[in-house]
């Protein structure tokens, strides 16, 4: 189970939060001129990386505020939490622990976080 450090309330159990999917998805500016393909891309397509993922969370059973997080989806380790009005940290500031695209972390799937 993940502990999430809410920037407003502090560290709480993940079950208090709801995930809002990929962060920083901008609504296209010219949506009235967009073709079906590009509109479909905006509505249905989201990043799904194994590794570094920028995502949104909301503290549903707490302060009910939204914030962003950077998480490694191969280990569930939360690398950074930042508020909505803060700039996202650059991807280069994190090291991806995966050697191959479908590879697993050294200590077995997901156990990395626990062991540390």
């Amino acid at each position: 189970m993940i502990l999430i450090n809410c920037p407003y309330c502090g560290e709480r159990d993940q079950s208090e939060f709801s995930n809002g999917g990929e962060a920083h998805v901008a609504r296209p500016e010219n949506s009235e001129n967009l073709n079906d393909k590009d509109w479909g891309r905006y509505v249905f397509y989201r990043d799904n990386p194994k590794g570094i993922f920028y995502e949104r969370w909301v503290h549903t059973h707490g302060c009910r505020k939204w914030f962003n997080a950077v998480r490694n989806t191969s280990t569930d380790e939360i690398l950074k939490i930042y508020k909505l009005n803060e700039n996202p940290p650059s991807k280069e500031s994190f090291t991806n622990t995966l050697k191959t695209p479908s590879g697993e972390p050294k200590v077995g799937s997901g156990n990395f976080t626990v062991k540390k």
Partner: peptide, 13 residues
């Protein structure tokens, strides 16, 4: 689980 993950375990809740 309510979030994307590739860890083959999932949350206890």
């Amino acid at each position: 689980d309510g979030y994307n993950s590739f860890t083959q375990r999932g949350g206890y809740d």
